[in-house]
Design a protein around this nucleic acid. Structure first.
Length: 292
DNA sequence: CACTTGACCTGTCCGC
DNA sequence: TGCGGACAGGTCAAGT
């Protein structure tokens, strides 16, 4: 599921591929739920617009256009943004690293065609994701943007910032707290489990029971795990691919996520367990992550 | 206000 | 082989 590293990987690809291209047409197969804008707005602010750049905030992708409008996209669980040049029918790279065949397919929600014959496909098997067009100046005012917490890979995200952000969630579990996008931006289930293992903290630990030393370790682990995952192109379990349809390889480096029954890298005699925390499947080493 | 749970979806896997 | 049900998880609305 696209979390910060996956969305950032898509952004890096799109930032390389899209700027300068001019939108020629938009097709929304099926229902308009995935792309709810009125046709007249699409005509006025999207058709003929040139892509200026691609940004990311938390798990949200922002494709800025020359019309001072922005295509805002949330991939949620199974969303993909896949670019194809006019020559490619099956995508770049070796077929074995692509999860995506000929496009559009039945998961395709929105197709953007550019004047040079290339296309951007927004696919979303489970239809939780969305894409919408809005004035660039309005983006910071949408509810999510107003409430979302600090970017964990920005230089000003210190352990003290994390500590202060956590104060509001003193009586909840640390896992629920770091999944809360208003506490810290971009962390989802994979990197919550990975960073809590890295920090040797049990995910059910109440935030108010954490020491400064715990929070420092969690801060370091979060930054390290997110940075490593971006370097590996993110995590692919089922559907995630980058802007060119390629899988990410982070899960080959994961310590606990989806590794129940396998030995803990720190304690080969102890097997990783899967439990339920904050309503989510949660992976821990029972030896290095003791309940507090 | 803090916190938890259910809804939104569809594909996959498991047990019968 | 078919089928019901559990499960996957990002976010928001509704509930306690």
């Amino acid at each position: 599921m696209p979390e910060l590293p996956e969305v950032e990987t898509v952004r890096l690809g799109l930032q390389r591929l899209l700027p300068g291209r001019v939108v020629a047409s938009v097709d929304v197969p099926g229902t308009a739920k995935s792309f709810p804008n009125a046709p007249e707005d699409v005509r006025q602010f999207l058709l003929g617009a040139q892509v200026a750049g691609v940004r990311r905030r938390a798990k949200v992708l922002l494709i800025d256009l020359s019309t001072q409008y922005t295509l805002v996209t949330h991939l949620k669980m199974t969303g993909q943004l896949v670019f194809r040049s006019d020559r490619e029918r099956f995508g770049a790279g070796h077929p074995s690293e692509s999860l995506v065949g000929e496009l559009p397919d039945r998961s395709t929600r929105v197709v953007l065609a550019f004047q040079d014959g290339s296309h951007l496909y927004f696919n979303d098997q489970r239809r939780f994701g969305w894409m919408r067009l809005m004035p660039t100046s309005e983006v910071p005012n949408i509810d999510f943007m107003r409430k979302v917490g600090p970017e964990p890979l920005e230089a000003d995200f210190t352990w003290q910032v994390l500590r202060d952000q956590l104060k509001r969630r003193a009586n909840t579990s640390i896992k629920a707290a770091i999944l809360d996008q208003t506490v810290v931006a971009g962390v989802g289930n994979i990197y919550a489990d990975e960073s809590l293992w890295g920090a040797k903290i049990h995910p059910k630990t109440l935030v108010k029971r954490l020491t400064d030393a715990n929070i420092k370790r969690l801060h370091t682990a979060l930054v390290d795990v997110l940075t490593l995952s971006i370097a590996k192109g993110g995590s692919t379990d089922h559907t995630y691919v980058d802007a060119e349809g390629r899988k990410g390889s982070y899960l080959a480096f994961a310590k606990v996520f989806r590794r129940e029954g396998q030995p803990c890298p720190r304690h080969p005699d102890t097997l990783i367990e899967k439990i339920r925390v904050a309503g989510r499947g949660t992976h821990i080493c029972p030896k290095c992550q003791r309940p507090k």
